[in-house]
């Protein structure tokens, strides 16, 4: 897909909306950054490639009163579907530009792959090769080796909802069963091992709430239990107890709502794999309610409904 087609589409849409959210060059060669386009002259700053990692749909609820155009990848489109299910956006105020995507980079994995060297340049080939030039060497990596985990098992490379699709739809070639393989594998560890693991990683948490603020489905906004004094749920100490409490509540609030965009984990400056918890609980929700968040706009999230009889929860059956 040439970026020119995208720019043409954005120019068109800009006549109907207040803002279009896309991507532009970030502060260095490996970073893209969200771009808010409010005038035609900014359209030329648009870029589209494997650096476009952010879930731009996350900005929609905060712009609910405006007409907004937004560029989404397949995974990002699930956020919009979930917003529609939960009534968090007005669909008629949103123009969705869908871009089929065959994977993006994970900055953390990329840096590790080049041993944290400064990257002077990066180019992407259609065959999935990524050429990275650092101070020390030029290296060719495979995109899937440096892609976020979500790309490796991506079921939705083409957006599920859009007004305009730019580029040809891509069909997923990843087996459905692969999606939660890593979670099932992790779950095989002993309780002690798992506890030790989470203690180690959450010890790093600095309570900056980047994970929360980057999460498209965190809807409590400024009334988060992490900071609220009335009621007073969590103290301002930064011990493991408080960190666990915050992250587990975040996780439980996302049960059957997390669209697995991975923004929480990508945003974490301390490299904590916070998405693992949310995917674990999503797996439970899938098994219990046969529900996958962010796929069908007409669905209702299972935690938004109450049935006396839940087909999959035998012990709750009455009589």
């Amino acid at each position: 897909m040439s970026v020119d087609k995208l720019k043409d589409a954005v120019k068109q849409i800009l006549n109907e909306v207040d803002i279009v959210i896309g991507y532009t060059e970030g502060f260095d060669k490996v970073h893209a950054t969200p771009l808010f386009i409010n005038t035609q002259d900014k359209v030329d700053q648009l870029i589209w490639d494997q650096r476009c990692v952010h879930n731009l749909a996350s900005y929609l609820p905060s712009l609910k009163r405006k007409k907004v155009g937004v560029i989404v990848k397949g995974c990002d489109s699930r956020t919009i579907v979930q917003y529609i299910q939960e009534g968090l956006i007005n669909r008629e105020n949103v123009k969705i530009i869908g871009l089929p995507c065959s994977g993006v980079i994970s900055l953390k994995k990329l840096l590790k792959a080049v041993d944290f060297a400064n990257i002077d340049d990066i180019t992407f080939e259609d065959n999935g090769n990524v050429n990275v030039k650092t101070e020390k060497e030029t290296k060719t990596l495979s995109l899937m080796d440096i892609a976020p985990d979500k790309c490796k098992t991506c079921q939705y490379p083409t957006p599920l909802i859009y007004d305009i699709l730019i580029g040809d739809p891509i069909k997923s070639d990843k087996p459905k069963e692969s999606v939660y393989e890593d979670i099932i594998e992790f779950d095989k560890k002993s309780l002690e091992e798992k506890l030790a693991y989470w203690q180690k990683v959450f010890d790093r948490c600095i309570r900056c709430y980047a994970c929360r603020n980057a999460c498209p489905m965190c809807v409590c906004q400024d009334s988060c239990i992490a900071e609220s004094r009335e009621p007073h749920w969590i103290s301002q100490r930064a011990t493991l107890t408080e960190k666990f409490m915050f992250h587990l509540i975040h996780t439980v609030h996302l049960a059957g709502r997390c669209v697995e965009c991975g923004e929480c984990e990508r945003a974490c400056p301390m490299g904590i794999p916070v998405n693992t918890l949310k995917r674990k609980i999503n797996l439970e929700m899938k098994e219990l309610f046969d529900y996958v968040p962010g796929v069908n706009p007409d669905d209702k999230p299972p935690m938004y409904t109450f049935n006396v009889d839940e087909l999959k929860i035998k012990e709750h059956k009455i009589g």
Binding site: L35, F36, N38, Y59, I206, C208, A210, P269
Partner: peptide
């Protein structure tokens, strides 16, 4: 408004800053 549209209003920038020194006082 234009420069900061993308900001998520999280605390990563301040908590990682070697000069940011603001604090809260709370009773527990």
């Amino acid at each position: 408004e234009l420069a900061l549209s993308k900001c998520l209003s999280c605390g990563a920038c301040t908590f990682l800053c070697p000069t940011c020194y603001c604090f809260n006082i709370t009773d527990e």
